[in-house]
Lab assay of single mutants.
Amino acid sequence: KFNKERVIAIGEIMRLPNLNSLQVVAFINSLRDDPSQSANLLAEAKKLNDAQAP
């Protein structure tokens, strides 16, 4: 279950337009470290993406 959620979360994070490459890598590394947190990490990535919108 967590592996599928992690793959989906990674794909979504990679498509967030307002994150820089270091932020994307940090979120992906966090997902690798704890796949059970996929939903929480994706939500945090989306919040950061929205906050950094031009």
Rank of each mutant, 00 (worst) to 15 (best):
Phe27Arg: 00
Pro17Gly: 06
Asp50Cys: 09
Ser21Met: 10
Pro54Asp: 07
Gln52Lys: 03
Asn18Phe: 11
Lys1Leu: 05
Ala43Lys: 10
Gly11His: 08
Asn3Arg: 03
Val25Lys: 11
Leu22Ala: 10
Glu12Phe: 15
Leu16Pro: 00
Ala43His: 07
Asn49Leu: 01
Gln23His: 02
Leu42Ser: 03
Leu42Phe: 04
Asn18Trp: 13
Asn3Glu: 15
Asn40Phe: 14
Ile8Gly: 03
Ala51Lys: 11
Glu12His: 10
Arg32Lys: 12
Arg32Ser: 13
Asn3His: 13
Phe2Tyr: 09
Pro35Phe: 11
Ile10Gln: 07
Pro35Thr: 06
Ser21Thr: 14
Ala43Asn: 08
Ser38Pro: 04
Leu22Trp: 12
Glu44Tyr: 14
Leu19Glu: 00
Arg15Met: 05
Ser36Gly: 06
Ile28Trp: 06
Asn18Ile: 01
Phe27Trp: 02
Pro17Glu: 05
Pro54Asn: 10
Leu31Thr: 02
Ser36Gln: 07
Asn18Met: 03
Asn29Asp: 05
Lys1Ser: 15
Asp33Gly: 07
Asn20Glu: 04
Ile8Val: 07
Gly11Arg: 13
Ile10Arg: 03
Asn20Pro: 01
Glu44Trp: 14
Leu48Ala: 05
Ala51Met: 11
Pro17His: 08
Met14Gln: 05
Ile13Val: 03
Leu42Asn: 01
Val7Ile: 11
Ala43Tyr: 14
Leu42Lys: 03
Leu16Glu: 00
Ala53Gln: 10
Asp33Met: 12
Ile8Cys: 12
Arg6Met: 15
Gln23Glu: 02
Ala51Ile: 10
Ile28Met: 12
Leu48Val: 07
Ala26Pro: 01
Met14Glu: 03
Ala39Cys: 14
Leu31Lys: 00
Ser30Asn: 07
Ala53Thr: 10
Ala53His: 07
Lys1Cys: 15
Val25Gly: 08
Val24Arg: 06
Asn20Leu: 12
Ala51Asn: 07
Pro17Met: 11
Pro54Thr: 08
Leu41Lys: 09
Asn3Ile: 09
Arg6Thr: 15
Leu16Val: 00
Leu16Ser: 01
Lys46Val: 06
Lys47Cys: 10
Leu31His: 01
Ile28Pro: 00
Glu44Gly: 05
Ile10Asp: 01
Asp50Gly: 08
Met14Val: 06
Pro54Met: 12
Arg6Leu: 15
Asp50Pro: 01
Asp34Cys: 13
Val24His: 02
Phe2Trp: 06
Leu19Pro: 00
Met14Lys: 07
Asn29His: 08
Asn3Leu: 06
Glu5Gly: 06
Leu22Asp: 10
Lys4Arg: 05
Ser30Val: 11
Gln52Ile: 04
Ala45Leu: 02
Arg6Cys: 15
Ala43Ser: 12
Ala9Arg: 03
Lys1His: 13
Leu42Gly: 01
Ala9Asn: 02
Ser36Glu: 09
Ala45Trp: 03
Met14Cys: 14
Ser38Arg: 06
Ser30Trp: 12
Ser30Ile: 12
Val25Ile: 13
Gln23Met: 04
Pro35Leu: 06
Asn3Val: 05
Leu16Lys: 00
Pro54Glu: 09
Met14Gly: 04
Glu44Gln: 14
Asp50Ala: 12
Phe2Ala: 14
Ile28Thr: 03
Glu5Pro: 03
Leu42Gln: 02
Arg6Glu: 15
Leu31Pro: 00
Gln37Tyr: 05
Arg32Ile: 13
Gly11Glu: 10
Glu12Leu: 15
Ser21Asp: 05
Leu31Val: 08
Gln37Trp: 06
Asn18Lys: 02
Gln37Ala: 10
Glu5Cys: 15
Lys1Gly: 15
Ile28Lys: 03
Val7Tyr: 14
Lys47Pro: 01
Asn49Thr: 01
Glu12Asn: 08
Phe2Thr: 12
Lys4Asp: 15
Asp34Glu: 06
Ile13Tyr: 01
Leu31Ala: 03
Gln52Glu: 03
Leu22Ile: 10
Ala39Phe: 14
Pro17Gln: 08
Pro17Asp: 04
Leu19Asn: 00
Ala39Gly: 10
Arg6His: 15
Asp33Gln: 08
Ala43Asp: 10
Asn20Tyr: 11
Leu41Phe: 08
Met14Arg: 07
Lys46Met: 07
Gln52Asn: 08
Asp34Ser: 08
Asp33Phe: 13
Arg15Gln: 06
Pro54Ser: 09
Ile8Asn: 04
Asn3Thr: 07
Val24Ala: 04
Ser21Pro: 11
Asp34Ile: 04
Ala53Asp: 10
Val24Glu: 01
Phe27Thr: 00
Asn3Met: 05
Val24Phe: 04
Ala51Arg: 12
Ala45Thr: 00
Arg32Glu: 14
Ile13Cys: 03
Asn40Met: 12
Gly11Trp: 14
Gly11Ala: 12
Ile28Asn: 02
Asn40Val: 06
Gln52Asp: 02
Gly11Val: 07
Leu19Ser: 00
Ile28His: 02
Asn49Gly: 01
Asp33Cys: 10
Asp50Thr: 08
Leu41His: 03
Leu22Thr: 11
Asn20Gly: 06
Asp50Ser: 07
Leu22Pro: 05
Asp34Lys: 08
Gly11Asp: 05
Ser38Cys: 08
Pro35Gln: 05
Ser38Gln: 05
Val25Trp: 14
Met14Trp: 04
Ser21Lys: 10
Leu22Met: 11
Pro35Ile: 07
Asn3Lys: 03
Lys1Ala: 14
Asp34Leu: 05
Glu5Asn: 07
Gly11Asn: 11
Leu22Glu: 09
Val24Asn: 01
Ile10Val: 06
Ile13Lys: 00
Gln52Thr: 04
Leu31Phe: 04
Ala53Ile: 07
Pro35His: 05
Glu12Gly: 07
Lys4Phe: 03
Lys47Glu: 07
Ala39Tyr: 14
Ile28Tyr: 03
Gln37Ser: 05
Phe27Asn: 00
Phe27Ala: 02
Ala39Ser: 09
Lys46Leu: 08
Asn20Asp: 08
Lys47Asn: 07
Ile10Cys: 10
Ser21Gln: 08
Gln52Trp: 04
Asn20Trp: 10
